[in-house]
């Protein structure tokens, strides 16, 4: 998890395109200036960052389902629930499932856990658009490679 660059997902554990679901890991850093303010003496991951982590997890799933032909952009956050504190240094495991692929949009249901304990969940809607800039596509390819996106999963049907 690189909070400075807002890249929250470290590793794709599993991508199942038949079942349209993904499991990823996100290692919360042990130290970061965010925890100095949120909160002094009681550092916890902000709920907006947990929501963003769930969105990025969903984004990788949608990119896989769409074979990187379009970019998902977060549009609607529903039923976002912060069910427990996530502390510095903890490993967050996030599972996202594609609930619906509509015309120009997609909906996921996402859950984040530390160990077996459910920490957060949400239903997220994304608008799907062509990559607005070639540089973004290049960046996403590089990120996919970095986090172990199984490119063979989208090249072999």
């Amino acid at each position: 998890m690189n909070l400075d660059y807002f890249t929250l997902i470290d590793r794709i554990v599993e991508l199942n395109l038949d079942e349209k679901r993904i499991t990823v890991e996100a290692q919360v850093p042990a130290k970061h200036t965010i925890f100095e303010g949120h909160f002094p003496g009681f550092p916890i991951m902000p709920g907006v960052l947990l929501t963003e982590a769930m969105a990025q997890s969903s984004g990788w799933l949608i990119l896989g389902v769409l074979k990187f032909e379009r970019m998902p952009f977060l549009a609607i956050v529903k039923e976002a629930k912060m069910r427990g504190f996530v502390n510095p240094g903890e490993l967050l495991t996030i599972e996202a499932k594609l609930e619906h692929e509509g015309s120009g949009f997609a909906v996921t249901k996402v859950k984040g856990r530390v160990g077996k304990e459910l920490k957060c969940s949400a239903e997220l809607t994304f608008g799907l658009a062509p990559f607005p800039d070639p540089a973004l596509r290049v960046h996403m390819d590089a990120m996919a490679n970095k986090i172990g996106f199984p490119l063979q999963a989208i090249t072999h049907d």
Binding site: H100, G102, G104, F105, V107
Partner: peptide, 16 residues
């Protein structure tokens, strides 16, 4: 988008 999702679900279709 929200309406389309609800309609797609309710009618089992994908509105184009």
């Amino acid at each position: 988008l929200d309406i389309a999702f609800a309609i797609d679900k309710a009618f089992g279709i994908k509105m184009p």
